[in-house]
């Protein structure tokens, strides 16, 4: 991921996106690093500008990445939604990577816990340890990939239920159900408020 990527031509990115949406895994594999690299670069710049009280807007980051990569693309709603899906995944990777870096910095101290607030990503609920969330999401993905994807898009991508539905080719009702269950499951996992799962 560290290798510098050539400036991809917007047309090529568009082509990749269309192919990836068509289920072409190779196209997805080519596309993901591009999106990831672009997002990472923008995120790094934003984090340098970090000020007290300022929050990192994944929204703005993904938006900018989109504009940079797909300058002149005329994409359908579904293709754009698909891009968001990829961007959400990339955003997750970037945040995890950052959280790990912070943990490494603080090594030696105790109670190392990087919350989403630390990552400048405030949510309305209780604060969450990013790395723990990632682990729980991986466990959830083993139970049901779709539930984990919905969380990824909703949370890391900042997508609404309808947008998530468009990105995953699901009905909004399905996404809503998946979101409710996945959130309940993660809440229990992460807050540990209740006895461990029987699953």
């Amino acid at each position: 991921m560290e290798r510098p990527l050539p400036n991809p031509s917007p047309g090529a990115v568009t082509e990749l996106l269309k192919n990836a949406r068509g289920g072409n895994q190779a196209a997805f594999n080519d596309l993901f690093p591009l999106v990831y690299a672009e997002l990472r670069r923008i995120a790094a710049r934003e984090m340098r500008r970090e000020k007290p009280g300022r929050t990192l807007q994944t929204t703005a980051l993904v938006h900018e990445a989109y504009l940079r990569l797909l300058k002149d693309a005329s994409l359908s709603f579904e293709n754009r939604a698909h891009f968001l899906g990829i961007a959400a995944h990339a955003m997750r990777e970037i945040l995890i990577e950052r959280a790990r870096a912070r943990v490494a910095q603080k090594r030696g101290g105790h109670a190392v816990r990087v919350t989403l607030e630390d990552m400048l990503l405030p949510t309305r609920g209780p604060s969450v340890d990013v790395l723990a969330l990632d682990e729980s999401l991986q466990r959830l993905a083993r139970l049901d990939e779709r539930h984990a994807r919905v969380v990824e898009l909703r949370y890391f991508g900042g997508l609404s239920v309808e947008e998530t539905a468009a990105a995953l080719d699901l009905s909004p009702a399905t996404v809503k159900r998946a979101w409710t269950l996945a959130r309940a499951w993660l809440y229990r996992e992460l807050t540990g408020a209740l006895p461990p799962a029987a699953t």
Binding site: T55, T58, A81, L84, V151, L159, E163, A166
Partner: peptide
């Protein structure tokens, strides 16, 4: 069900979603 009842707002980012901007 119990966890779900208390998870309101949990993991829900503040502010508008990216899709609102992008899509």
């Amino acid at each position: 069900l119990d966890a779900g009842g208390r998870a309101d707002g949990f993991l829900t980012p503040r502010g508008p979603g990216v899709g609102a901007l992008l899509l």
